[in-house]
């Protein structure tokens, strides 16, 4: 199957010299959920924003391949990118409280997406907005259209964001920690909603999260990111059954699994924090936090295949 989104060797650096993304490759297939997992500051969001060309000034992006279907994103002008964003590829964000413009009604903000990309009238835009609000489980959509964001709860606002992202029936939806800022019960609702929508619409979903519970629930494939690199990528089953990279193993140890994790033992944790890495860094960025580190970890690390569709970036992996 041809991927919807294909990225090879994406690098993003900032003007202060930090290398936020250091040569990552991933692809998202039609209709699948691909989870990008990692701690805060590992470069997940930067990856997502660079796909959308939404990085601020001061960020430099380069990639060998960055393709949306057959369209080369690396060669597209700002204007062409703007035509694609919100139309064929859409994104929702972590902060539903601040992601909507406080000065405009929900309906106006939703309708303008369709007006921009499909050149329809305001009335047609509002019709579609009302239908989608109903679709994402908002009752009385007609009333909500004329409300302002400050009149809605966080969960409702995130539903509005999701509905707004679906206005033009995108093929790719990038969701950057869409439930992190929400209550646990609302989190579950939003995840269920995303799953349902994906199944109905055949969306390709790139889901960014730090929550392994969400990964277990949502993902078909997983890429684990650490300090700007993908250290392990596998199907969700393979990753949870046989994690190959010490970082992935550490992450899984931090999460209790009902029935499996002994009740009387403390949960695992990974000491230290994600290091800030400059452009010239060589070797494994995890070596200072890794219990298995050897001298080999300071050299070039090969990317190895541990099973079919299961790769890791570690010297320990069998070659």
């Amino acid at each position: 199957m041809k991927p919807v989104l294909e990225i090879a060797n994406l690098r993003v650096g900032f003007s202060d010299g930090t290398a936020a993304v250091r040569g990552i490759s991933l692809n998202v297939l039609p209709g699948e959920t691909h989870c990008l997992v990692g701690e805060s500051g590992c470069g997940k969001s930067v990856t997502a924003l660079s796909v959308m060309s939404l990085l601020g000034r001061g960020a430099k992006r380069s990639a060998e391949v960055m393709r949306f279907h057959d369209r080369d994103l690396t060669r597209m002008s700002d204007r062409e990118m703007a035509r694609l964003r919100g139309d064929k590829m859409a994104m929702i964000f972590q902060e539903p409280m601040t992601s909507l413009n406080p000065a405009y009604t929900v309906g106006s903000q939703m309708a303008e997406v369709l007006e921009r990309h499909r050149h329809v009238s305001r009335a047609q835009g509002l019709d579609r907005a009302a239908a989608l609000l109903g679709h994402v489980g908002i009752t009385a959509p007609g009333m909500r259209l004329s409300q302002y964001p400050h009149q809605l709860s966080g969960g409702l606002r995130q539903r509005v964001m999701i509905a707004m992202a679906l206005m033009c029936e995108p093929e790719l939806l990038i969701a950057d920690e869409p439930t992190t800022a929400l209550d646990v019960t609302v989190q579950a609702q939003i995840l269920r909603l995303l799953q349902g929508l994906q199944r109905q619409l055949g969306l390709a979903l790139l889901l960014i999260t730090h929550d392994l519970g969400i990964v277990a629930r949502m993902a078909q494939r997983v890429s684990v990111m650490y300090a700007g690199q993908i250290v392990e990528s596998a199907t969700a089953e393979a990753l949870f059954a046989a994690p190959a990279h010490p970082y992935t193993q550490g992450l899984l140890n931090c999460v209790p699994i009902p029935g499996k994790t002994p009740r009387d033992q403390p949960l695992g944790s990974i000491p230290g924090v994600v290091p800030r890495i400059g452009a010239g860094f060589i070797g494994c960025a995890f070596r200072d936090r890794c219990t298995h580190a050897t001298t080999a970890c300071s050299g070039d690390i090969p990317r190895r295949s541990v099973a079919q569709h299961h790769e890791t970036l570690c010297t320990m992996a069998p070659s």
Binding site: L54, A82, R85, G86, T98, S99, A103, E112, R116, M161
Partner: peptide
């Protein structure tokens, strides 16, 4: 954040700047 959203929606620069940012 709402300007990032406006840009993610693919709105033109004129709309992002003059409609969404200037009003606030």
């Amino acid at each position: 954040d709402y300007i990032r959203t406006a840009r993610a929606k693919g709105l033109s620069t004129a709309s992002v700047v003059l409609k969404h940012a200037l009003r606030n």
